[in-house]
Simulated assay, not measured.
Amino acid sequence: MDKRFGAGVPTKVIGNDVEVPLVGFGTFKIWPYEAQQAVEDALALGYRHIDTAQAYLNEAQVGAALAATSKADETFVTTKLRNGDHGYEATLRSFEESCRALGLDVIDLFLIHWPTPTLDNYVDTWRAFVHLREQGYVRAIGVSNFLIEHLDRIAAETGVVPDVNQIESHPRFWQPELEAYCKEHGIAVEAYSPLGHGSDISSAPVEAAATVHGVSAAQVVLRWHMQKGHVVLPKSTHPERMRQNMDLDGFELSDSEMAAIDSLDDPTATVSLDPHTFCASQTLEDMVARGSVKLEP
C-alpha cells in the first residue's frame, strides 16, 4: 500500500506499480474562483486524488490548495494536456507550465485530454509523454477520450500502451467494447461524469439497489463503478455530497444488481463530446466562449 495516502484509502495499481486512489475529486467546471476552497474541502474530507486539467484553468488553485493544506506529498494529482498544445516540443513546454501552476516537481498522472484526430499529431504527443515518464517527471502516463482506433495506433507506432484511459462512463453509457479492450490491454479505466444523467440515478435498478442497501442512488452508481474496477471522479462543491461520494465501503452490489445496472447501457446516451471530431483548442478564449470555464462569480 502506498503510504502517502494513509490507511483506509482504497487504491488500484496502474502502470509500473503506481497506486492511484480509486475515488478521486473531479474539478471540471469548478470555476477558478471557487476551486481552491473546493479542493481544500475535499482534502479535509479525506480525498487523496485530485483530477484537474490545463483546460479547466484551475491548476493554480489546485496547487494553492495543496500548499495551504500541506497535503501535496499525500495526494495523487492528475492533469491533462490541452488540445492546443499537442506536438512533441509543445507538450514538453506545456507540461512545465502545469508543474509551475501546481507547485509540483513530479506529477502522478499526465493525460492527453483528447485525441483530436483531425489535427493528426497525437502520436508525436504520446512520444513526449513517454519521454516525460522515462525522465521521471511523471509517475504514470495515459490518455482521455481515446477510442480503440486511437489506442491501437499509439501502441503500434510507439510500442507503449497507456497506463490509463479516462473516459465518459456511467450506467447509461459505459462503453462496454472500449472497456473490454482496455481490460485486455492492461489499461486502467477512469470514469468521468460517473453519475451521468439524472436518468442514470433515477433508473429502476439503481433505485432498487439503493433501497436494499440503505444508501443513496449516487452511492450505488459509484459502487457499481468500483466493482467494475474503475477509478471514479465525482464532482461536487457541497461537502456533504463530497463525503457521501467517498463512503462506498459499507455495502456490496450483488451480481444480479451489477447486471441490471449494466443493462442500462445505451450507445446514444453520451453527455460529452465526440472523440472522432472534437478538436477545439481549449485556450482561455475557447473555454470561456463555450461555457466550460467561468472566470468571475
Rank of each mutant, 00 (worst) to 15 (best):
K294C: 05
R290W: 00
V138Y: 06
S144F: 00
L57Q: 14
I261S: 08
Q219T: 10
R241Y: 02
P162E: 02
P239K: 09
E190R: 00
P10R: 03
V232P: 07
N145E: 02
A260H: 10
N83R: 00
A269N: 03
H213C: 14
I261H: 10
F173Y: 08
K294W: 01
K183R: 12
P194V: 12
S292A: 03
N58Q: 01
L111R: 01
E177H: 11
K29Y: 04
E89M: 13
L273C: 01
Q37F: 09
H197M: 10
A210W: 04
A155G: 04
E40L: 12
V221M: 12
S272E: 00
E177A: 11
S292P: 00
A209V: 03
Q227R: 08
V123P: 08
A128R: 08
I141Q: 07
Q282D: 11
V39C: 08
E177C: 01
Q282E: 11
G229C: 11
D262K: 09
N145I: 07
Q166Y: 01
V143R: 04
W114F: 07
M287F: 00
F95I: 14
R82T: 04
E285M: 13
V293M: 01
I107E: 07
S144C: 04
E177M: 01
P115Q: 01
K3M: 12
A67N: 15
L132E: 09
L233D: 03
M226C: 13
F278E: 11
S199L: 13
